[in-house]
Design a protein around this nucleic acid. Structure first.
Lengths: 336, 336
DNA sequence: ATGAAAGCGCTAACAG
DNA sequence: CTGTTAGCGCTTTCAT
């Protein structure tokens, strides 16, 4: 069997209380401490975290709920969160929720049973009741790449409104007049679209309702939406897809109709994932400061977990437009 | 405070032993069972998993060690593994090891302290000592997208040799004579290259040593390697990059030298990730049956965890070549 | 079929 | 400074 605190105590010739004290850095005579440490070393003793957690100590485990770990943007966040958490001595249990309220509730409940120390909720968390009860029970939570307008909860995200605004400004500067937008049913998309519209309005342009479509999260969903948009007798000359994955669908739709990018159609994405860098053509997109966002989110959470919590924060970071080859100047050309 | 087994017992008017019995489906009179269930319901009782794990029960948590969760292929595996594990009532704690022996050892030790029920090790696991000790301690383990030639351990992977063989056959059939290979320092790459060479030999072709370069895992590493290869006075007309990420680097290198794909250079990847579908041009690559592999891996692990283990297995699945637009017939053309 | 009691490995008063 | 002891919430004999 694996050595327990009793084995260490016996070998060091002290009581288990003393062993516990050296583990928890409580006052112990130097000589005694050394004896204990030595015994631990010899036995290759590793304290059982379950037992100490049962006594109210931390598990040093964070529940990380996200929409879908297979999504490249999400996966990259996961890596950043993991690295930061690891630096601070925490592990991550990761659950993909697919924006499904049931799954959200189930996973939160499950992880609570397993006594995680807190939660990072990435992307829109749909089940507000669950979020509220987490807050009521004072379980540490931080929202990542999301925020809540009325709840007192830590959150870290990019300024989606500005992101959308920048995209529109770019397209306008290229002379595009007829523009469409494809988003998913999430707050981030909606904010991006709001910013997008704002820029248009400031230039006395407007976005007809038929030109904005909110749909599913997959590339295929976007492909369908884009196909419809492009079938219009007067099709858009530019499409803003609210993230890179959706953009891939748009590219495919255009390719399917022999529409050249960017000559006939400009496309802009969001997130600056690997996909956008290697797509055909490389995609103009908006970069989020993932690394910073994730570090901050972890730091906020751990501060709360470890009780050094200051006041709740809503941190909003700035996005950056990255211009590649999927956008170009609009040239009126009659193909008819 | 959250209700404990005592609260349930009191409310139901029975002893905690009885409550425990109904939770564990042990014989209890129907009437009693109902009373208990009712009490649990009313209190919204959730058993504390740490406590039961302390008594030797499972934590229903699996340690999932992988090279890098930000890698799209790995992320997709993670999702499949997660889904299957969840179906069976298990959660995943995910750790990125970067092929680093130290990290591997550290994470295994940490997760053992947290009493995970078993491990899935994805990709090459470099620290053989740690793997061996896991096996010796009879901790359930399965290797995913990897295997071990001499250790008695469950594993599930694709037949990399055949994958490489198919790639070579495809390139040969297109008339390519001067071919190069870029791989990473991992067994899978080496196997793919072995299969690749085999096909060449069978066609009385051979691969000069300078034409195969083993390097880092990043797209940038591959870009550098490819740049060198392409600077050769007699550059290759086709390059096999041992996975899609590396391929992206090759594409960039070619683009940097104004080499057209596939006209001047054919490129083949491996894994059939999102990257390959949306790259410029869409990449010829090799698909792995990720879903099946991951389900099997989880099933093997859980069988072992739950003691219904049959004999150890090494499962090897077949890959499938997917031809897209990054490969074309070789045409001798003098540009000079 | 049910309950009393011991104990999993650890922490935290409380004495000494 | 160190040891004794009582739990944390649950499972598991062993009686009844």
């Amino acid at each position: 069997m694996k050595p327990t605190i009793y084995d260490v105590a016996k070998k060091a010739g002290v009581s288990i209380a003393t062993v516990s004290k050296v583990m928890n850095n409580q006052p112990v005579r130097k000589k005694t401490r050394e004896k204990v440490l030595e015994a631990m070393e010899e036995l290759d003793y590793k304290p059982n975290i379950l037992a100490s957690a049962l006594m109210g100590k931390r598990t040093s485990t964070i529940g990380f709920l996200l929409p879908d770990i297979a999504n490249p943007f999400v996966a990259e966040m996961a890596r950043r969160v993991e690295d930061r958490a690891h630096e601070k001595g925490y592990n991550l249990v990761i659950c993909s929720t697919d924006f499904d309220r049931e799954k959200e509730a189930l996973y939160v409940s499950l992880l609570n049973q397993k006594s995680v120390d807190g939660f990072i909720l990435a992307g829109d968390f749909k089940n507000e009741d669950v979020l509220k009860s987490l807050l009521e029970e004072h379980i540490p939570v931080v929202l990542l790449a999301a925020s809540h307008p009325s709840l007192l909860v830590n959150s870290v995200r990019v300024d989606d409104f500005i992101g959308g605004y920048e995209v529109a400004s770019h397209l306008i500067s290229l002379g595009h007049k007829k523009i469409a937008v494809i988003g998913e049913d999430a707050t981030s998309s909606k904010e991006r679209i709001r910013g997008f519209k704002q820029a248009l309005q400031e230039n006395e342009m407007n976005l007809r309702d038929e030109m904005v479509v909110i749909g599913g999260s997959s590339s295929e969903d976007a492909e369908l939406s884009a196909a419809k948009l492009l079938a219009d007798p007067e099709p858009p000359t530019a499409i803003f897809a609210c993230n890179d994955i959706l953009s891939m669908g748009v590219i495919l739709a255009a390719r399917g109709r022999d529409i050249r990018i960017p000559d006939d159609l400009s496309i802009v994405g969001f997130d600056n994932t690997l996909l956008s860098m290697n797509s055909d053509p490389p995609l103009t997109t908006v970069e989020q400061p993932i690394q910073d966002m994730c570090s901050q989110a972890v730091d906020l959470l751990i501060e709360e977990i470890e009780g050094k919590s200051k006041t709740k924060q809503r941190i909003i970071m700035m996005p950056r437009l990255i211009i590649r080859n999927s956008t170009s100047e609009y040239r009126a050309e009659d193909d008819a």
